[in-house]
Design a protein around this nucleic acid. Structure first.
Length: 595
RNA sequence: GGUCCUGUGGUGCAGUUUGGAGUGCACGCCGCCCUGUCAAGGCGGAGGUCGCGAGUUCAAAUCUCGUCAGGACCGCCA
């Protein structure tokens, strides 16, 4: 446990002494020499030297301390013990400089076994990786290790810092319900059957969105909550069914105010964990993010930016390059990639939905070595080298496709080829601003909103909104924004529509009639009739922020009891069937499994 | 919904390409020895339905198909 960094409990307790112990194992030092202490913990290791001498490393969350006992104690690994002894300097030349407690040991020990234990289901040392399912099945043992101790305590620090930052800025903590009405928008809802009204269901909240807006109508002015959110969508390294968000909303603000509030919170959290305060968080427009990084959540820790080559190929003879958009990226030193590897990358791009991937290796004379070079003109080839600023030994990758797909594919490829490990490159927060209001135009010619239909259009685009038709509507920007950290979307927010004339116009454009709007969002629209302040808000994922700050590439590592990718809990076996009588009471019947 | 990877004593691996007796390594576990170790050391020992099921074969951990579990990603996640 040498890398544990505890001693300051997140609770802010003044002492961790109890009726059973005086000190924590990892906190004893030479300055305690001569004092008699009592420590409690788990046996980390025993080293026996016959019946007269044995060393016991006793472990708690702060680290380990060596106790010198005689060899007659039957103390095995993970036994829980209470040891009272005198803190003494170790004999000359036996100090262990690798251990914070390495200068001292406990002597004349009185040992009390509090619990015996079976051997742990996996090695307790941190050197060998253990299958995650086995760790999760025995999470209570896994949690004893330094990694989980560190991560869960980091998480508590993040929560605490974020909470403090919001309080400091005058935000009021309001708890919103977990059993709410299902809304058809957004992610798939988790649903809870109602016993009192069989056939009816509550939904678990995907976010407190509606309620926080109601709080604004209610004059709360600045609301926040550390909220559990539930979405029944497929799991990933950065996604669990249930996750925690810092959810906030404020009245009489612009998006700049929101940036201030939230930036403060994440900078406080970062400082609390790393000890270093991040600088001002830069802004980037959504359009720039897509053009330069091919992603709305760009990882700005590294370059390899996308370069637009479309005009170079305006009159190309090469059919594959007769596309709406041609872009390229350059991988430094990539010319040494094997043909096998390049084939793998091409397959990958095809799996992502691309038609293919063109690669061009830069030779010593800056000519391009590529299977498709013969289809390109001299000026096209030299143009590629110039635009991508390619040097001998580099490789250029080109994709030609529809605009969005070209950006998307190269954005994925860029991350695949260039992304640094999670622990490198620092913490590059980024505000992505000016998201488009609409994602696409459906077959009926109606626009589909990128966020929810209450997102305020960009003030400069209101005229466009009123005049644009068809594809032009995609140019309309909104007052919505994302916070990104090292290529992960931490969260998003927007300025909300509080004026019924604008809201009606948006509903009309979306093809949502007055009746439908009333049915779906009636209670919110009703509330707005009674005096809605201009308001805006944000929410960001605490699991994701914690994972990145802890140097983990998987949020399961910062969650005490996470689910596997298929949504199961190896510890409790959830989800499980329920008794027929229970279903009966709820008015439910389970269908036979679909063929 | 899809693509890819993985599954071998308690744990982590090798063995699978090219079929030939459950073969090997490290850690752990059990017993004995050991008075200064700290990833202690020495000696001895136990422990496996090679995820599961079919198929091919004289013969399958190894090849084929299916299935289950886990992971990464695409779709999805307003």
């Amino acid at each position: 446990m040498s890398d544990s960094t505890p001693s300051t409990p997140a609770t802010g307790a003044k002492t961790m002494a109890t009726a059973m112990r005086t000190d924590l194992c990892g906190t004893l030092r030479a300055e305690h020499e001569g004092t008699t202490v009592t420590v409690c913990g788990w046996v980390d290791r025993r080293r026996e030297h016959g019946e007269h001498l044995a060393f016991i490393d006793l472990r708690d969350y702060t680290g380990i301390v060596q106790a010198v006992v005689d060899g007659n104690h039957d103390m095995r690994v993970e036994y829980v013990a209470r040891i009272t002894g005198t803190v003494a300097a170790r004999p000359a030349d036996t100090a262990n400089p690798d251990l914070p407690t390495g200068e001292i040991e406990l002597r004349d020990c009185e040992v009390e076994i509090l619990s015996i234990a079976e051997p742990p289901p996996f090695p307790m040392d941190e050197r060998t990786g253990v299958d995650e399912t086995i760790r999760l099945r025995h999470r209570y043992v896994d949690m004893r290790k330094a990694r989980m101790q560190r991560n869960l305590r980091t998480r508590a620090k993040v929560n605490s810092a974020v909470r403090g930052a919001m309080e400091e800025q005058g935000f009021v903590e309001i708890e919103t319900p977990m059993l709410i009405a299902s809304t058809p928008e957004g992610a798939r809802d988790f649903v809870v059957p109602s016993r009192q009204k069989p056939g009816n269901f509550y939904a678990l909240p995907q976010s407190p969105q509606i309620f926080k807006q109601l709080c604004m109508v209610g004059g709360i002015d600045r609301y926040y909550q550390i909220a559990r959110c539930m979405r029944d969508e497929d799991l990933r390294a950065d996604r669990q069914f249930e996750f925690m968000q810092l959810d906030a909303e404020a009245s009489f603000v612009t998006q700049e105010d929101v940036f201030e509030f939230i930036s403060h919170a994440v900078r406080e959290a970062t400082e609390a964990v790393t000890g270093e305060r991040p600088g001002e968080i830069p802004h980037m427009t959504w359009n720039d993010a897509m053009e330069r990084f091919g992603s709305d959540k760009p990882d700005t820790r590294f370059g390899m930016e996308l370069v637009n080559l479309t005009d170079l190929f305006a009159e190309t003879e090469f059919n594959a390059f007769k596309a709406e958009r041609i872009m390229g990226i350059r991988l430094e030193g990539g010319a040494e990639l094997s043909r096998n590897k390049l084939d793998d990358l091409t397959d990958m791009v095809k799996r992502w939905g691309g038609k293919g991937l063109v690669w061009m290796k830069v030779e010593d004379d800056k000519s391009l070595n590529s299977p498709v070079a013969k289809f390109c003109s001299e000026s096209e080839l030299t143009g590629i080298v110039e635009r991508l600023e390619a040097e001998p030994g580099d490789i250029c990758f080109l994709v030609a496709d529809r605009l969005r797909r070209t950006q998307h594919l190269l954005g994925l490829l860029r991350v695949e080829l260039g992304r640094p490990p999670v622990t490198e490159g620092g913490f590059n927060f980024l505000w992505v601003v000016d998201f488009p209001l609409f994602e696409e135009i459906n077959e009926d010619g109606k626009p589909i909103p990128l966020h929810h239909p209450f997102t305020m259009p960009h003030p400069d685009d209101v005229d466009l909104l009123n005049t644009a038709e068809g594809e032009e509507l995609l140019e309309v920007r909104s007052q919505s924004y994302d916070l990104v950290l090292n290529g992960w979307e931490l969260g998003s927010g927007s300025v909300r529509i509080h004026r019924s004339d604008i809201q009606s116009r948006i509903f009309e454009m979306l093809g949502i009639g007055a009746e439908e709007a009333q049915l779906k969002f009636g209670f919110l629209l009703d509330a707005f009739k009674y005096g809605a302040p201009p308001h805006a808000g944000f929410a960001f994922g605490l699991d994701r922020l914690t994972a990145l700050l802890a140097g983990e590439e998987n949020i399961r590592e910062v969650i005490a009891f996470p689910k596997t990718q298929s949504g199961g809990d190896p510890l409790t076996q959830a989800p499980t069937p329920v008794a027929d009588a229970h279903l009966e009471e709820l008015g439910l019947r389970v269908l036979p499994p679909a063929e």
